Amino acid sequence: MADTIGMLRPRTEVWPSLRAAGTWALRFDTFPHVRIGGLVRGSCWLILEGHEPVLLEEGDTFLLGNPPPFVLAGTLDASPRPAERVWAAVDNGSVRIGPESEEDLHLCIGHIAFDDRNAALLTDLLPPLVIVRESDPHGRRLAQLIDLLATEVGAAAAGGPLVQSHLAQILLVHMLRAHAAQTDRPTGWLGALNEDGIGSALRAVHADVAHPWSLKELAEISHMSRSAFAQAFKRHVGVPPLEYLIHWRMSLARDALARDALSISELAQATGYLSESAFSTAFRRVVGSSPAQFRSQARQPRAAAIGN
Score class of each variant (00 low, 15 high):
T4N: 02
R9V: 00
R9M: 07
T12Y: 00
W15H: 00
P16E: 03
A21L: 00
T23N: 14
W24H: 01
A25Y: 00
D29K: 02
D29L: 02
T30D: 04
T30M: 05
F31D: 01
P32N: 01
G38W: 07
G42N: 08
L46T: 06
L46P: 12
H51K: 05
H51S: 09
P53R: 00
P53K: 00
V54E: 13
V54M: 03
L56Y: 05
T61C: 15
F62G: 01
L64F: 12
G65C: 07
P67N: 04
F70W: 11
L76K: 05
D77C: 03
P80V: 06
P80M: 13
R81H: 10
V86W: 00
V86L: 11
W87I: 05
A89T: 10
D91I: 02
I97T: 04
P99A: 05
S101I: 05
S101W: 04
E103W: 08
I109L: 08
I109C: 02
I112H: 07
I112D: 02
A113Y: 00
A113S: 12
N118I: 06
A119G: 09
L121F: 05
L121V: 02
D124V: 01
P127N: 01
P127Q: 02
V132A: 06
E134N: 09
P137F: 11
H138D: 09
G139F: 12
R140S: 12
R141G: 07
R141A: 15
L142C: 08
A143Y: 04
Q144K: 09
L145F: 08
D147E: 09
P161A: 15
L162E: 11
A168Y: 09
A168D: 06
H174A: 06
M175G: 10
P186T: 11
W189C: 08
A192H: 08
N194S: 11
N194Q: 06
G199D: 04
S200K: 10
A201I: 10
L202D: 11
L202Q: 09
V205R: 05
V205I: 15
D208V: 06
D208T: 10
V209F: 07
H211Q: 10
W213K: 13
E217C: 04
L218E: 06
E220V: 08
I221A: 02
I221K: 11
F229A: 14
A230Q: 11
V237N: 07
P240H: 06
P241R: 05
L242I: 09
E243S: 14
W248Q: 15
R249T: 12
R249D: 14
M250G: 12
R254W: 11
R254G: 14
R254L: 15
D255A: 14
A256Q: 10
A256F: 07
A258D: 14
A261R: 14
L262A: 12
I264G: 13
S265I: 04
E266I: 05
L267N: 13
A268C: 11
A268F: 12
A268M: 07
Q269N: 05
G272S: 14
A278I: 01
F283D: 07
R284T: 13
R284S: 13
R284I: 00
R285V: 03
G288K: 04
S289A: 15
S289F: 05
F294G: 12
A298V: 02
A303E: 13
